[in-house]
């Protein structure tokens, strides 16, 4: 069992967890993820490792409540245990040196981007970061990203914070005003696809981290298969990072919708039972 040591909400739907995982903590590298299961009847889902403290034997995860499993995870508190956490999985990010790099994070993808940004910055690269979200209340990790970047640009779709518009608007400006070697982009698939389109036109190498559906996370199910450069690759063991310009985003966007109806049903059931629990708590003495 993996005990929760700390929990903090970064936004109404996004929380940061520090979890006891003594074997994983010393092995975590930027780009790695874990697969976890929240309950005995739970599904296995991949979540990026944001940070770790080998001395304390803990890892940090940042989770947005979107599906049933992530919503259930957000109900867990300090002292609760998560039954299964396995990792670190996936290939770690190869850390370049002597480059000018733009790190683009969208929504909760910023949490996945943070450890990579930190590592690239620590390796002496010039790092410009762009963090975008739909609106101000969904912006997370601004200070952490600022500390890991030479310059940080914020955007919101509705203009409630930073520049009004998309991360790609800011990226276009950066690509025209500065010489950029590599772009890292992590966020919702449509965002990564849009970034990839911009950088392809500009001829700038781009790396994306793909959040495909997974079961085992160790190369056994093939559920996370993605088309990269016309070849079938498994996001869990061949990735999760790939050359954005070779990724068939449309196929992945479709595949990630495979269970949207099931997910809706699951979430609805969870929220109904959860509401009952909440009512129960109200009437309890």
């Amino acid at each position: 069992m993996f005990k929760i040591r700390e929990k903090e909400f970064l936004s109404p739907t996004i929380a940061r967890f520090v979890i006891e995982a003594p074997f994983i903590a010393p092995k975590r590298k930027p780009g790695n993820f874990v697969i976890l299961r929240v309950s005995e009847r739970g599904e296995r889902i991949p979540i990026t490792l944001v940070d770790s403290d080998p001395g304390a034997g803990t890892v940090t995860l940042i989770v947005q409540g979107i599906g049933k499993t992530t919503k259930e995870l957000l109900t867990k508190n300090v002292g609760d245990a998560i039954p299964d956490v396995v990792g670190p999985l996936g290939k770690p990010t190869p850390i370049h040196t002597n480059e000018t790099i733009v790190c683009v994070g969208g929504g909760v993808g910023t949490a996945e981007l943070l450890p990579i940004t930190r590592a690239l910055h620590a390796a002496g690269n010039i790092v410009y970061s762009i963090v975008g979200a739909r609106s101000r209340d969904l912006i997370i990790l601004e200070q952490e990203m600022a500390a890991a970047s030479d310059e940080l640009f914020m955007t919101t779709d509705d203009g409630s914070y930073g520049r009004k518009g998309f991360v790609t608007d800011q990226l276009r400006d950066l690509l025209t005003s500065r010489k950029v070697d590599t772009v890292y982009a992590i966020g919702p698939l449509p965002m990564m696809k849009a970034v990839s389109g911009v950088t392809k036109d500009a001829g700038v190498k781009t790396v994306v981290s793909l959040n495909a559906l997974m079961v085992d996370g160790t190369g056994m199910c093939g559920g996370c298969r993605v088309s990269v450069g016309g070849k079938m690759r498994f996001a869990c063991v061949d990735g999760p990072e790939f050359n954005a310009h070779e990724v068939d985003f449309d196929e992945l966007i479709i595949r990630n919708r495979s269970y949207s109806e099931h997910e809706r049903e699951s979430v609805q059931r969870f929220e109904e039972s959860h509401a009952c629990q909440a009512r129960g708590a109200e009437v309890a003495p």
């Binding site: 009847r41 599904e43 085992d216 199910c221 093939g222 269970y259 099931h262």
Partner: peptide, 21 residues
């Protein structure tokens, strides 16, 4: 492998009582 893992290991036959579809 994926199909059987979903059903055998993750007990997808019991969805939505289990979470894996």
């Amino acid at each position: 492998n994926e199909f059987l893992t979903r059903v055998n290991l993750m007990r997808a036959y019991a969805f939505p009582d289990t979470d894996t579809p």
